[in-house]
Design a protein around this nucleic acid. Sequence first.
DNA 1: CGGGAATACTTGAGCCCTCAAGGAGTGTTC
DNA 2: GAACACTCCTTGAGGGCTCAAGTATTCCCG
Lengths: 158, 158
Amino acid sequence: MAAWLDPEEMAAWRSMVDVHAELMAVLESELVRAHGLTLGDYTVLVNLSEAPGERLRMCDLANRLHLSPSGITRRLDGMVKHGLVAREPSTDDRRVMLAVLTPSGRAALEAAAPDHVEGVRRHFLDHLSRTQIRNLAAAFAAVERGEARRRAAPGDAA
Amino acid sequence: MAAWLDPEEMAAWRSMVDVHAELMAVLESELVRAHGLTLGDYTVLVNLSEAPGERLRMCDLANRLHLSPSGITRRLDGMVKHGLVAREPSTDDRRVMLAVLTPSGRAALEAAAPDHVEGVRRHFLDHLSRTQIRNLAAAFAAVERGEARRRAAPGDAA
DNA sequence: CGGGAATACTTGAGCCCTCAAGGAGTGTTC
DNA sequence: GAACACTCCTTGAGGGCTCAAGTATTCCCG
């Protein structure tokens, strides 16, 4: 168990944490200033817009956003109040609530998305070469695959 | 203004966001379970332990942790109550409060750090080759440099 | 079919963070 | 050296999240 991180490992780890924090902070503040949308609300809108019928079960939404059941309930509360989404009981399964994109929610997303994407470019992608972008995607994909494999492994405590 | 992200850009961006979220969640839960420490508290302890005299002004701490002034006050409140840090008025400048690592805070850090580092390895670094780690560090360093340059540029709205 | 386990969502209590406002100390300028 | 601007920290109000508990519905299995 090589106890500590060597300088290269430390640089990779800490710079990722720092860059991510900085990036999210600036993207969020630009989004709030320009469109009155939280990054969290924006992510809900993106997920709904990409879903078939522009609707998603609460629990699926919770999984995608890494939110607890009550977390997603309360976030939807706010977004319903602002008219961005509506709740709709499922006819298939009467336990289920669907979150549906409203016209006004779709409009908000369509207004915000270009600015948000431009922000991702300006604050992140523009500082990287095409090769670096490819390498980054490959590295994170490797982490995702590795973790998925680790979770399925026998020695797992879960 | 190339409007949208192409598949490679999208993969790099979304996978970074996803991996980061997943990683922080699992590291936090392991830290809480094994040592009763929040990732936020742990970060305070790390920063204090690396500071000269194991003490830091509240506002410096706030900057390092991307926290507002009141945020750092309230986090210290909790940590003081748990005996991990102490407050100490500065003699140089009587507006300033110093946060000081207590013996019990140093002990908590020394107990938690090996496990935390091992978690970073197991969930992140172990999935990457040495070359990928170097490339990652270089890429994030490039983003940091690029943003620093952008912030200093004339056209900036700030 | 009937009862227990599992799933989906909501609610109450509470933690942690933010913003706005305020008190206290410093420094600067004339 | 008095007044003004600025910095540092804290507090009150409020938003967003979590956990624990509760209700409603569905699934599973003898």
